[in-house]
């Protein structure tokens, strides 16, 4: 079949309901929908402050049909650890405890709790849906914001000056059994990773790129295309790391030029050919490093 048919590989159950308050074209909402398809109804989620605080619905609503605990910003992994402990005491080994955090809650304010949980190898699945800035508060830079990007705290005159934090390597360094990246443009890969993670005991980490039309200054309808281009350009390669040691690419990455991806996003509109060239160089260099990791296992 020439068309990449995926419908048979996507579980049909829906644990997310319509009427949620995400912006149109929200990558993070789709990420939750797909992850829950992979996890099924025996799932509990610890939800720190992030866009999903809103998306999950105001009291007395909930947009997901699983137990969800709204938690302080920096506590996703810790609250999840507590939920897990309680379930352990109840003899429930079947339910997956999901920590669901944005990039701010993962890369920045929640990193300590995440590191603690990962180091203890808490039996939780931590998913970071990454929209590359503090979007819920109105687009402020986070340590997941890519080099060169505009945000309200990195204005175009002085855009983000540091590369995105390598969270996958950080998590791998904890020697957790499973860490991976995924993209909402590749639902089969994403769900496969979720299902794989679900079957593993210990801390599992999934980093999902989730484009944000208002924050990236793109059209609402470009979300999936951008999530796809991020992968195809090697800006956000799809990878898996087992036991912190075995690195693997999940697919062939053609290495499309970064320029079309950059040019489509308003948050990069101030960048000229030189800066875009620099991004390409950085992507290429990082790719070489990833290839070495895959080859050698670091």
């Amino acid at each position: 079949m020439s068309q990449i048919q995926i419908k048979d590989q996507i579980p049909t159950g829906e644990l997310m309901s319509s009427g949620h308050f995400a912006c149109p074209g929200c990558g993070g909402s789709l990420a939750m929908r797909l992850v829950l398809k992979g996890l099924g109804p025996k799932t509990m989620v610890a939800l720190p402050a992030c866009c999903w605080t809103i998306v999950a619905g105001p009291w007395p609503q909930s947009s997901v049909n699983i137990p969800l605990y709204h938690s302080p910003f920096e506590t996703a992994a810790a609250v999840a650890s507590g939920i897990r402990a309680a379930l352990d005491m109840q003899g429930d080994q079947e339910t997956t405890v999901l920590a669901w955090a944005g990039d701010g809650g993962t890369f920045d304010i929640g990193l300590q709790a995440l590191s603690g949980a990962a180091e203890r190898n808490e039996n939780i699945l931590y998913v970071c849906y990454d929209n590359e800035a503090y979007m819920n508060t109105g687009i402020q830079r986070s340590s997941a914001t890519p080099w060169g990007a505009w945000t309200t705290t990195t204005p175009a005159g002085h855009p983000e000056a540091r590369p995105k934090k390598d969270i996958l390597a950080i998590m791998a360094a904890h020697r957790i059994p499973y860490a991976a990246t995924a993209s909402v443009a590749y639902p089969v890969d994403l769900i496969r990773k979720v299902e794989k993670a679900r079957a593993i005991r210990g801390t599992r980490f999934l980093h999902v790129i989730a484009p944000c039309p208002p924050g990236w200054k793109t059209s609402d309808d470009e979300t999936i295309e951008l999530a796809r281009m991020a992968v195809l350009t090697k800006i956000f390669p799809l990878m898996e790391v087992e036991d912190g040691q075995t690195w693997r690419f999940s697919m062939e990455h053609p290495g499309d030029p970064v320029e079309p991806y950059i040019k489509r996003q308003g948050r990069f509109s101030h960048l000229g050919p030189r800066e875009i060239g620099q991004i390409q160089l950085d992507v290429d260099a990082r790719w070489k490093m990833l290839e070495r990791r895959v080859e050698m296992g670091i």
């Binding site: 309901s17 009427g19 609503q61 909930s62």
Partner: peptide, 8 residues
């Protein structure tokens, strides 16, 4: 919560 977001 006691309801979904379907009312929105």
């Amino acid at each position: 919560s006691s309801t979904t977001t379907m009312a929105n």
